[in-house]
Every structure is written in C-alpha cells, then in structure tokens.
C-alpha cells in the first residue's frame, strides 16, 4: 500500500481529508439534532449520516475497501445475524397474540 515516500504523502493527505470530513459530518449531525424536526425524521437523517461516517472509517481507515474476500464473507454473515438480533425482538413486540391485553 505505502510503497515509497510520495505515495505515502498522498496516503497521509487522504487520511487527513477523511478526518476533516468526519469532523464536519459529526458537527452536521449535532446541528440537525438541534433543529428539533419531528423525531422520526431526525432519526433517519442522523442515523444515515452516522452510517456514512462509519462506512468511511471502515472502508478507508480499516482498509476494508481492499480487504480479502474471506473477511467480506465473515462480515456479511455477522451483519445478517446482527439484523436478526436487532429486529426480531421488535417484531415480537409489535405482533402480540390478538385478544390478549399484552402490555409491552
């Protein structure tokens, strides 16, 4: 990756750029949260910006962009189960037995 001096400088400049982007996105998130839009809108915006920041960190800083196929398969498997663990309990709450006074 960092073969010689000048490409090294280029790499470091890229990292610093990413750093600035991350800082500004965080500030943007803070600003959005202060706007007090309706709650679901803020959630969507803030979470998507945070997800973008996270993908920046993952792809660039952790070099996931140029990683081996094997690591991708591990991570895809993990994300599938992560989604299950996150949303099935919720589905359980929103789909109670009909006719029962189920207090969440």
């Amino acid at each position: 990756m960092i073969a010689d001096q000048n490409s090294a400088q280029k790499e470091i400049r890229k990292y610093l750029l990413i750093f600035v982007v991350l800082l500004s996105l965080t500030l943007m998130n803070v600003f959005v949260s202060r706007l007090h839009l309706n709650i679901s809108l803020t959630i969507i915006i803030v979470l998507s910006v945070a997800a973008f920041e996270a993908s920046l960190v993952a792809c660039q800083l952790m070099h996931l962009i140029s990683e081996e196929k094997l690591i991708y398969s591990f991570l895809v498997l993990t994300v599938i189960f992560f989604v299950f663990a996150l949303f099935i309990p919720l589905w359980g709450i929103f789909n109670p037995i009909t006719g029962s006074t189920h207090v969440p």
Binding site: T26, N29, V30, V32, S33, I39, T42, I43, V46, L47, V49, A50, E53, A54, V57, A58, L61, M62
Partner: peptide, 18 residues
C-alpha cells in the same frame, strides 16, 4: 481501535443526538 471509534460514532449519535 478504529472499530472502537466506529462504535462510538453510532453510540454518540444514538444517545446524545436522538
């Protein structure tokens, strides 16, 4: 370390901003 930072990005957004 980058992973710990990545988790904090989500944590900060979820706890402080929402």
């Amino acid at each position: 370390w980058h992973f710990v930072d990545l988790v904090w990005i989500f944590l900060f957004s979820v706890m402080y901003l929402l």
